[in-house]
Simulated scan of single mutants.
Amino acid sequence: MAPLRQKAIVIKEDKTVVLKEVDVPKVGPGQILVRVIAAAQNPTDWKTLKTLDKPGGLLGVDYAGVVEEVGPDVPEGLRHVGEHVCGTVHGGIGPTGAFSEYLVGSAKWGVIPTPAGWSFEDAAQIGVAGFTAIQTLWEAQKGLPTPLAPTTTPIPILVYGGSSAVGFYTIQFAKLSGLRVLVTASPRNFDLLKEYGADELFDYKDPEVSQKIKAATGGKLKHAVDTISEAGSGDIIAAAFGEDGGHISQILWYPSPKENVTVHFTLAYEIGGEDFEHPIHFKATAEHQEYCEKVGKLLADILALGKVKPMPKLILPNGLASVEEGLGYMMSGKVSAQKITYRIADTPGVSA
């Protein structure tokens, strides 16, 4: 049985964080209570911290842990006590978040079984990155093959920002689907990204990067995933397309950079299958919730192939007590090709 109180990272009025003791959230209908073993950090964590005008919420979205309790109205056999799970919750907006000893989340949406052979520290990174990679490849792009039915025709696809967490998973999923994966990144990460499936790599700072990608694809590039979605990335991608233009999957919205270029914005929070007001207003429908279940199954099935690798981790030494340091490190722009990760048991005063 879970305790009544726990340590968690809480948003303060001055838009900083504090590690403090709070109530363990109560499991509700359709939910599970998870004992968090490891949590991973994402850019959305610091963006929520700086943009949300409602203090008191528990921060953190990505987690891996053990199911402690299954709430009412959870379909029989879907989840069970003791199950190892990983996924994402909408941290920062209320009394549950991944940077804590316990969290509550949907038993259906935004959660999958931990892949065989993956540690909790590895599985903690799957949530936002894994679900977003699914969205960018098969929601935002139409008709692309999946790793469950790969193509023998190497359709070119550009992954702009391959060193991001979303980039690592998008590269792997695209490669397993039989696609020809072109990637922009910093040259210092080229060798690493080749190990994860990148076929051709381009320096994103090269002023001729668009022309080089266009030449490499013979003007045939029509699909791109923009894992950065700022600093003019859309213009760079649009210039790499051929005369017929193409389609860009975005993780941050921007208008189409060119008349013959279409864009599609996806947001990982939508995979949670519930209404929310931050960072945008979103209303979940029954049809959307059915889609969320399909996305979760696809992600779980791809990982079950045993061919996807976790990205490199940077495990900070003091668990939740290191979150403030980790947020500052990420906000300074120093994170590249690694996932900041916290072991909850490393937190001073928390028992394993």
Rank of each mutant, 00 (worst) to 15 (best):
L252F: 14
A231Q: 14
K283W: 08
A284T: 10
L252P: 03
E290V: 12
S233D: 01
H278V: 10
L299T: 10
I248R: 00
I302P: 04
P310R: 04
Q289Y: 08
V261S: 03
G234Y: 04
E277D: 14
E270F: 13
E274S: 15
S229C: 04
G232Q: 05
K297E: 13
A304C: 07
A231F: 11
T266M: 11
K297F: 06
G242T: 02
D301M: 09
P279D: 06
E290Y: 09
L305M: 09
I251A: 00
L267C: 07
H278S: 12
F241R: 02
E274N: 15
G296E: 02
E277K: 15
G272N: 15
K307S: 13
G306A: 09
E290M: 14
G245Q: 07
A231K: 15
G246W: 06
V295N: 05
F282S: 12
E287S: 07
K283N: 13
C292Y: 06
L299A: 11
M311I: 07
E293C: 11
H288V: 12
L305E: 10
E230P: 00
E270D: 11
I236V: 15
I237A: 01
Y254K: 06
C292V: 08
I302R: 04
S229Y: 00
H288S: 08
I236D: 03
A240C: 03
M311T: 10
H281T: 15
T266L: 05
A300S: 15
K309I: 06
F276S: 09
L252R: 13
I280P: 02
V295T: 08
N260D: 12
A239W: 00
H264S: 14
G232W: 04
H288T: 11
V261M: 07
E259F: 01
A231H: 14
S233A: 12
T266V: 15
E277F: 11
A304E: 05
E287W: 08
P255Q: 03
I280G: 05
G242Q: 02
K297T: 13
K294D: 07
D301N: 12
D235I: 04
G246K: 01
L303S: 04
H264G: 10
G245S: 08
T262N: 07
I271P: 02
H278D: 09
K307D: 14
A239V: 00
S249N: 02
S249T: 02
A286R: 13
H247V: 04
V295G: 08
I248L: 00
T266N: 12
S233K: 01
Y291G: 08
E274D: 14
K258W: 02
Y291M: 14
E277T: 15
D275K: 13
D244M: 04
K294M: 10
K309W: 05
V295S: 05
H281D: 13
S249P: 03
L305W: 08
